[in-house]
C-alpha cells in the first residue's frame, strides 16, 4: 500500500479505531441511541468548528468565535420577544457583520488575524455585557417553543440538531467544492502571493471567509441559546479551544489550503469520542484534562498530512 495515498484517509481511520476501541471496552457505547445522543450534543461545537474551518483554511484564525456565540445568545434572548423568528435573521446578520469587520481589519489594515479577531471578540464581549446588563437572561419558554422548538426536538430517534448540522455541512461542502468562492479560498490558503498574482481579489475572499466564520459562530450561538432557553455574555466560554482542536485534529492545519469542512466533521467527532470515552475508562475528573492533552498529541501526530507542509513552523 502506498503510504502517500493512505495518508489523507488517516483522520477517519483514527475515528473508526477510536470508536471501535471504546466499543470493545464497553459495548453500551456502540448502541445507536447512545451514539446519536453523543452526536446531537456536540452540534453547537461542530457548527462553530465549521466556521473556524474557513478562517483556518485560508491560513488565518478566528479567535472571536466564542465571544460571537456569547453575544448571539444575548441578542437572541433580548430580541426574541419583539422580532419572533426574525431574530434568527438578525443573529446571522450580526455574525456576518462582525466577521466582515474582522476580515476588513485583517486584510485592509494588515493586522494579523490572531490579533484582529481577538480584538473584535473583545468588542463583541463588551456589546454582550452592555445588552444583557451583565446578567443571565431567560427566553420566554412558550415563545421559544413556538418559534425555535423544531431545532431541539426529535424526529424518530434522531435529534433534529443533527439535521441542522448535516444541512450546514452540505451547504459549506457545496461552497468549498462547487463554487468560485471555494476555489478561490483554496488558492489563497495554498499560496497567497500566487493567488493574488493570478488575478484573484484576495482581500475580498478573505473578508468573506471571516464573514462565513462569523455567521456560523452566530448560528452556533443561536442554537445554544435555544437549547439553554437563555443567554449570558459568558455562557459559551470554553468552546473556542475545543473547536480549534476539532478543526486541527480533522486534518486542516494552520498553514491553510489543506483539509476542509468534511475533515472538521470527522475532527469534531474525534474530539467528542475522546471526551466521552473518559467516562467509559473511568478516568477521574481531575485527570481528564491531562489525558485529553496527551491523547490530543497522539491524534494530531496521526492525522496531519505532513507531505503538504513545506516547513513545520
Amino acid at each position: 500500500m502506498d503510504f502517500q495515498r493512505f495518508k489523507p484517509h488517516l483522520p477517519w481511520i483514527t475515528l473508526v479505531v477510536l470508536v471501535a476501541f471504546v466499543g470493545m471496552v464497553d459495548d453500551t457505547f456502540l448502541r445507536p441511541a447512545n451514539l446519536l445522543s453523543l452526536a446531537g450534543d456536540i452540534v453547537p461545537l461542530f457548527i462553530m468548528a465549521l466556521g473556524l474551518t474557513f478562517a483556518i483554511y485560508i491560513g488565518g484564525i478566528d479567535l472571536s468565535a466564542q465571544s460571537m456565540a456569547n453575544l448571539i445568545t444575548v441578542v437572541a434572548s433580548v430580541y426574541l420577544a419583539s422580532f419572533g423568528w426574525g431574530v434568527a435573521v438578525l443573529c446571522l446578520l450580526v455574525g456576518f457583520g462582525f466577521g466582515m469587520v474582522s476580515g476588513y481589519v485583517t486584510t485592509r489594515l494588515l493586522v494579523p488575524s490572531f490579533i484582529s479577531t481577538l480584538a473584535v471578540g473583545g468588542v463583541a464581549f463588551s456589546l454582550a455585557q452592555f445588552l444583557s446588563g451583565q446578567r443571565a437572561l431567560n427566553m420566554d419558554a412558550a415563545q421559544r417553543d413556538a418559534v425555535f422548538g423544531w431545532m431541539i426536538g426529535k424526529t424518530g430517534p434522531v435529534p433534529n440538531e443533527l439535521f441542522i448540522a448535516a444541512g450546514l455541512l452540505a451547504i459549506t461542502l457545496f461552497i468549498e467544492r462547487r463554487t468560485t468562492l471555494g476555489r478561490a479560498l483554496k488558492a489563497v490558503g495554498a499560496g497567497e502571493p500566487a493567488a493574488a498574482a493570478s488575478g484573484i481579489n484576495v482581500a475580498r475572499y478573505k473578508i468573506l471567509a471571516f464573514a462565513i466564520s462569523g455567521t456560523l459562530a452566530a448560528t452556533a450561538g443561536l442554537l445554544f441559546a435555544v437549547k439553554l432557553s437563555g443567554g449570558a455574555p459568558t455562557i459559551a466560554n470554553g468552546f473556542l479551544l475545543p473547536a480549534i482542536v476539532a478543526v486541527l485534529v480533522g486534518g486542516t492545519p494552520l498553514t491553510g489550503g489543506v483539509g476542509g469542512v468534511l475533515n472538521t466533521a470527522i475532527g469534531t467527532l474525534i474530539v467528542a469520542v475522546i471526551r466521552s470515552s473518559m467516562l467509559y475508562f473511568n478516568i477521574q475528573a481531575t485527570q481528564q484534562q491531562m489525558v485529553f492533552g496527551l491523547v490530543l498529541i497522539g491524534a494530531i501526530a496521526l492525522t496531519i498530512d505532513r507531505a503538504k507542509l513545506r516547513t513545520v513552523k
Binding site: 482542536v245 486541527l248 492533552g293 498529541i297 494530531i300 501526530a301 496531519i304 513545520v312 513552523k313
Partner: peptide
C-alpha cells in the same frame, strides 16, 4: 513528531 508548534503547544 513534526507537529506544527501551534498544535503541539496547544496540546501541551
Amino acid at each position: 513528531l513534526r507537529i506544527p508548534s501551534f498544535m503541539a503547544s496547544l496540546a501541551m
